[in-house]
């Protein structure tokens, strides 16, 4: 049973990490608590649903298309909401408030237009049958989530640490004003971060929608709290930290539910969060930097 429970925890943790990747990137580089992020996750799932169900596209095509569409949507919405605030030098919390208002409106619009019911991908899109290795059962969608998490984390790390673009992004995360003075076009870079993080959210929405087979307008909202925990424990903007923190959270939740009491799994997860913050105030892997919110 322990093997299966560890696999359960690993998969749950991978979904948390997958959700948190784009969130931590946006938070770390643009330093905006963007609550609309959860909506891009919903959007990705619904776009893929439309492409596969209504247009009959195969998943292999619909998946990247949905991710790109979510990214483009993110450029538009983030630009509309945040550019003006950045120009007038508004306090950081104003951006939190504006994204809060926007996400309320976006979820409500999606519910009004698409209906509140749960929808599912057509059964032909992916096999639901589980495979069994050494008494551990795992589905195709779950394998896909694990692979996607590995590929995306690897890709992001290579981007951030192996390219000039990554250097510019890290410079901007460190100090946007200095980065601007050094000739980095911060507005365009912010749009690029919006695109990448929106696309990551959309990709996560498709995969997690496939795994749980339940797509509904507020699905992104339900992930936000865990997303916050993962990016804080992992450290803001820290891709590797988000991966480790996500896996840790998933495994702790599953083991608590499996071996202690299922009613306590959230409490234990949050107690660990609080304990981590008390002992390491900048996240598990963060350096001690003091920044005002």
């Amino acid at each position: 049973m322990l093997g299966q429970q560890l696999a359960n925890g690993l998969i749950l943790g991978a979904t948390y990490a997958l959700f948190a990747l784009g969130f931590t990137l946006m938070f770390g580089v643009i330093r905006v608590i963007n609550l609309v992020y959860g909506f891009y996750f919903t959007a990705g799932a619904f776009i893929a649903l439309y492409l596969t169900r209504n247009l009959g596209w195969p998943m292999a095509v619909a998946f990247p298309a949905a991710a790109i569409a979510s990214g483009v949507m993110a450029i538009g919405i983030d630009g509309l909401l945040l550019t003006r605030l950045r120009r007038v030098g508004a306090p950081e919390l104003a951006s939190l408030m504006v994204t809060l208002g926007a996400v309320l409106a976006l979820y409500a619009t999606a519910t009004a237009l698409l209906g509140p019911d749960i929808k599912r991908f057509p059964a032909s899109v992916i096999g639901a049958e589980a495979m069994e290795f050494a008494a551990i059962r795992i589905t195709q969608a779950q394998v896909l989530i694990l692979l996607a998490t590995i590929v995306l984390v690897g890709g992001l790390l290579a981007l951030m640490h192996g390219t000039r673009l990554g250097l510019a992004l890290r410079a901007m995360a460190e100090n946007p004003d200095a980065a601007g003075l050094m000739g980095i076009d911060t507005i365009r870079l912010a749009a690029l971060v919006s695109f990448i993080s929106g696309a990551l959210a959309g990709a996560g929405g498709v995969l997690i929608g496939l795994n749980f087979n339940a797509i509904q307008p507020y699905m992104g909202e339900a992930m936000m709290l865990r997303g916050f925990v993962v990016i804080i424990v992992g450290g803001l903007g820290d891709i590797r930290g988000a991966l480790i923190a996500g896996l840790l959270l998933g495994i702790v939740e599953v083991l608590t539910a499996g071996y202690i009491a299922s009613g306590l799994k959230e409490a234990v997860a949050f107690a660990i969060l609080v304990a981590v913050l008390w002992s390491r105030p900048a996240g598990l892997f963060g350096r001690a930097v003091t920044r005002r919110a």
């Binding site: 049973m1 359960n8 599953v254 499996g258 299922s262 959230e266």
Partner: peptide, 20 residues
């Protein structure tokens, strides 16, 4: 007796325990 949250999407831990 296993519980979950009404917004949860993952029940694998509880079900693995029950299966055993």
């Amino acid at each position: 007796t296993e519980t979950f949250g009404s917004k949860d999407t993952d029940f694998s831990a509880q079900l693995t325990k029950i299966k055993a």
